[in-house]
């Protein structure tokens, strides 16, 4: 899929997106504290692909998803959906576009209204987006339930009557109800047991093919990301450190952080894993990110240059960009 990306027009373009959060001041004379959760990121999302955003807690991957949807108003930058700027839209225009971009969250239970049956939920979703006249909705609901592998009689039940995996299926059905083009999956399978997770991952892949969906898949789990993605973007402390075709990223990671991240994953086949790189220390606070390269405090190869100058994202190989001063040297 990624080979012909260049010919395709992006469905969603994220341009220099910044999302800052100002903390409430505790005392009168305290200086304003700003969390730079997302600090100037760029990427395109092409129709039909799955782009994953990976990174550890606090890297800004979930915030990116929320900013795109304007669940948090972006501080700066632009998000273009088919060339239209989402941040510049009025609330009404945005509501019309939102039907095209749906989201599935990690905790399906928290995102489902406990007092509404599945039927009411799906009906409401379709009514808001005016996708179908009321008399055609019934047939559509039954179809949706079949697509996500739930029995039709479950339509009359409430969220608490379902298991975690089933709830995630309901979340998917609700997202599909409005015929979206893009689905943002925010840690959508992270809370599930492995056997259930496999079911949901298979389902997502099947639905993508059937409905020609585009996924923005946000996850901390690299083996899941490898399974589902076409391209992968790695974030660290609000910045993109590497973005690449999946195979290129997993076979030949260029950024030292990506390398460490990959090597840190415990795998069942110990013979396949390369030498483990154990990073020292914790991720620094996004309140005061390190100057220069944000990764320099934990990078085994950091030099003075890294401590002073922030590296930019450079396309080092075809469809494989990396933000590291020494990526070329380190990869050879």
């Amino acid at each position: 899929m990624s080979k012909d990306l260049i010919e395709k027009k992006p469905l969603l373009q994220v341009i220099d997106l910044k999302q800052y959060f100002v903390l409430k001041k505790e005392a009168m004379f305290q200086t304003k504290q700003v969390v730079k959760a997302v600090d100037g990121i760029n990427f395109d999302l092409y129709p039909g692909e799955t782009l994953s955003i990976v990174g550890e807690s606090g890297c800004g991957k979930s915030t990116t998803g929320r900013s795109i949807l304007r669940l948090d108003e972006p501080t700066e930058g632009d998000v273009l959906f088919k060339g239209q700027s989402l941040p510049k839209m009025s609330k009404r225009e945005l509501r019309n576009v939102r039907g095209n971009i749906q989201v599935i969250f990690q905790d399906p239970y928290a995102s489902l209204n406990p007092r509404r049956t599945i039927r009411q939920m799906l009906d409401e979703a379709m009514a808001i987006q005016k996708v179908l006249p009321p008399n055609k909705r019934e047939a559509r609901m039954l179809e949706l339930m079949q697509h996500v592998g739930l029995r039709p009689e479950y339509l009359e039940r409430y969220p608490h009557e379902f298991s975690g995996g089933q709830r995630q299926r309901i979340g998917i059905a609700r997202a599909l109800a409005v015929n979206p083009e893009i689905i943002i999956c925010d840690e959508a399978v992270s809370a599930l047991d492995v056997s259930i997770r496999a079911q949901i991952l298979n389902l997502l892949k099947k639905l993508q093919k059937e409905f020609d969906l585009t996924f923005l898949f946000i996850s901390h789990d690299l083996s899941v990301v490898r399974h589902i993605s076409d391209r992968v973007m790695v974030m660290y402390l609000g910045k993109v450190v590497e973005i690449s075709d999946k195979s290129s990223l997993f076979d030949k990671p260029l950024h030292p952080y990506t390398k460490a991240l990959l090597s840190a994953i415990p795998v069942t086949d110990q013979t396949k894993r390369g030498e483990r790189i154990i990073l020292k220390g914790d991720v620094p606070s996004p309140l005061s990110p390190p100057v220069g390269c944000r990764f320099h405090t934990r990078c085994p190869f950091a030099t003075d240059l890294c401590r002073q100058k922030e590296p930019v994202l450079v396309e080092l190989e075809k469809n494989h960009s990396v933000a590291c001063h020494f990526a070329k040297e380190l990869s050879s």
């Binding site: 492995v194 496999a198 997993f250 795998v267």
Partner: peptide
Amino acid sequence: SLPKLYEDQEELQII
């Protein structure tokens, strides 16, 4: 049912 980190699979085995 585990996705493999070092190989590509079209579909995961499920229980």
